Simulated scan of single mutants.
Amino acid sequence: MEKIQINNTDLKIGRINFGGNVFGWTLNEQQSFEILDAFTDAGFNFIDTADTYSWWVNGKGGQSETIIGNWLKQRGNRKDMVIATKVGSETKQHGFDISKKHILKSVDESLQRLQTDYIDLYYTHFDDNKTPVEETLSAYDEIIKAGKVRYIAASNLSPERLVASFDVAEKNNLPKYVALQPHYNLVERANYEKDYLPLVEKHKLSVFPYWALASGFLTGKYRSEADFGKSVRGAGSKKYLNDKGFAVLDALDKVATKHSSKQATVALAWLLAQPNIGAPIVSATSQQQLQTLFDAPKLKLDTEDLALLNSASA
């Protein structure tokens, strides 16, 4: 298994980041354990979750971290895993919040649910757009010094707040974000490539795109509204049923056929071929889906493949 190092850290990861939003939602605990076992048996070690997953089920979240924590305890493999979780998201009980008070409270709750002494990568999940950047970073400084968190990262921050975070960290000797988790895939390119890529390159951030398969659209199984019933997330593909979306699917079909592969594998391989991309975040609810993910780092797209996909998705 090829592993890469997250920039500015000593964390080494496989090139697929398993998205834990399905734990406690579309997968119960036993099913989650089976998927996690298969994921690690294949040599992968990077799991992504959040303190609020899956809040849409019970209004507050915590199920995903709890399931991962139970699995880590039963398997006794914490030292072999890289665990990322997040803070600051909105639930029915509280709004977006990256205040020091909320971070200090939330990190302890996450550690308890995960049944671990430390979190490898701790994300600012969403920005509340009111807490001073220095306050947020000073909270992270405190929990890093306490050994509760190893490194910090950013997800849904505006480019302006991201810039401010690096400026304040530099001036005040506070922790700097080492990674970015943006919305980026073959049908969602413009925002990341225009607004975030220059910051990624300037600060040498590792990038872990979420919705790497565009809510399942890039698997090729949603080609009309009649297909939405194939999963609980099917309707999320509706916005991609347009000329651009169909052009991307056509390109994926051609490349997948050429390599005797799956559309999802090709879509992930395209991401992995982009500069600065460490490991796309993807979920699976079956062994068959997992294999599609596992095949992505092995698929090396050639110049012709990349040109076809780039043209269709531009």
Score class of each variant (00 low, 15 high):
W56Y: 14
K202L: 13
H94L: 10
D97T: 08
E65L: 09
N8A: 14
N276E: 11
S165P: 04
A267G: 07
T91C: 11
E90Y: 09
V87L: 05
E201N: 14
Y177C: 04
Y118S: 12
A256F: 03
Q181N: 13
T66G: 08
K86R: 10
T124W: 01
L197K: 05
Y118I: 12
I98D: 00
Y53D: 10
K145V: 11
S311E: 13
A256P: 03
E304K: 15
L249A: 03
G234C: 13
L218T: 09
R113H: 14
T116D: 02
S206Y: 06
L137P: 04
K298C: 07
V266W: 09
G88H: 04
L111I: 13
E109K: 11
K230H: 13
L306N: 00
N28Y: 09
F208Q: 02
G24Q: 10
G61T: 00
K238V: 02
R189D: 00
G69P: 14
S261I: 03
Q63P: 06
E135M: 01
V266P: 05
N173R: 15
A190N: 14
P209E: 01
T219M: 01
H102F: 15
V107S: 02
F18Y: 11
L268S: 10
V248E: 09
K73T: 02
Y53N: 10
G216N: 09
E2C: 09
D253R: 12
D128S: 05
S313T: 12
Y53F: 15
K254I: 06
T257C: 00
D167C: 10
N191P: 04
L272Q: 00
D141I: 06
S237C: 14
L121Q: 10
V107R: 04
D120E: 14
G229T: 12
V87N: 02
A267Q: 05
I13T: 02
N45F: 09
G24R: 08
I98F: 03
N156Q: 15
A146L: 04
K148C: 01
D108T: 00
G43V: 14
S165G: 15
E304Q: 15
K202D: 05
Q274E: 08
L306R: 05
T292V: 04
H203Y: 15
E29R: 10
W56P: 07
W211L: 06
A235V: 13
K239C: 01
D51M: 08
E135T: 06
N17R: 07
F39A: 00
L299C: 09
V163H: 00
A284I: 02
K221G: 03
Q115W: 06
K145L: 10
V187L: 08
